[in-house]
Amino acid sequence: MTTLNTEHSEVILHNPVDIVEELAAANDWAYERQGDDELTLFISAQYTDLQMRIYWRDDFKTLQFACIFDLKVPPVRQRDVYQTIGRINERLWIGHFEFWAEEEALLYRHASLANDPLIGAIGEEHIATIIETAVGECDRFYPVFQFVMWGGQTPDQAIESAMLECAGTA
């Protein structure tokens, strides 16, 4: 068994939710601050409005993003949506999709650790990249969920249809 050396100099971490609030103001995004460690952004994406909830856990030095679609999953399609999520998550490098059954909500979620002394605190560039990635992945896979829930396609058919890349110009 390998033992890791965790001795390092102390890194002062600032609350990254403050940085998210500054980014929201700079980008004219509507937002609500629920407390010192929580904020919700309201972002219009390509296909739908997104509600991005950001949570800071100081005890774990972790910033979590949960990007919720403005889309309810009908109970009759939940099994297909779970299968779709599994297929999509196989393709992702960062973050993952989930279904919160209690809220019937579909979301993209990602967490970043800020406890590495070589990296230091989570900064503005890092947060901007996470937000861009979350919105990008939601835009990329929203049609897949639409095809499964309302188009009657299987998860594999929906992914193939939505991931079709066009060549040339019209």
Rank of each mutant, 00 (worst) to 15 (best):
M1L: 14
M1W: 12
L4V: 15
T6K: 12
T6H: 13
E7L: 14
E7C: 12
I12L: 11
N15D: 08
P16W: 00
P16K: 02
P16S: 04
D18W: 00
L23C: 04
A24T: 12
A26V: 07
N27F: 07
A30T: 15
A30F: 15
A30N: 15
Y31C: 12
E32N: 10
E32M: 06
E32V: 10
E32K: 09
Q34F: 08
Q34E: 13
G35T: 01
D37C: 08
D37T: 07
L39H: 01
L41I: 03
F42D: 00
I43E: 03
S44D: 13
Q46W: 02
T48D: 06
D49P: 02
Q51T: 04
Q51C: 03
M52H: 00
R53T: 00
R53C: 00
I54W: 01
Y55P: 00
W56T: 00
R57C: 03
R57V: 01
R57I: 04
F60P: 00
K61G: 04
K61T: 10
L63P: 04
L63M: 05
Q64I: 02
F65V: 02
A66Y: 03
A66S: 10
F69V: 03
K72A: 01
K72L: 01
V76T: 13
V76A: 13
Y82E: 00
Y82Q: 00
I85S: 01
G86I: 01
G86S: 02
I88L: 09
I88Y: 07
E90H: 07
R91I: 10
L92C: 07
I94E: 07
I94S: 06
I94K: 09
H96W: 09
H96K: 15
E98P: 04
F99G: 01
F99I: 04
A105Q: 15
A105S: 13
L106I: 11
L106E: 05
L106T: 05
Y108H: 09
Y108I: 03
H110I: 09
A114S: 12
A114M: 06
D116K: 04
P117F: 09
L118T: 13
I122G: 05
E124G: 04
H126G: 10
I127Q: 05
I131W: 06
I131F: 07
E137K: 11
R140V: 14
R140M: 14
F145L: 02
F147N: 08
M149P: 05
T154D: 09
P155S: 04
Q157F: 05
Q157V: 08
S161E: 14
M163C: 11
M163S: 15
M163Q: 13
L164P: 04
E165T: 15
C166Q: 14
G168E: 12
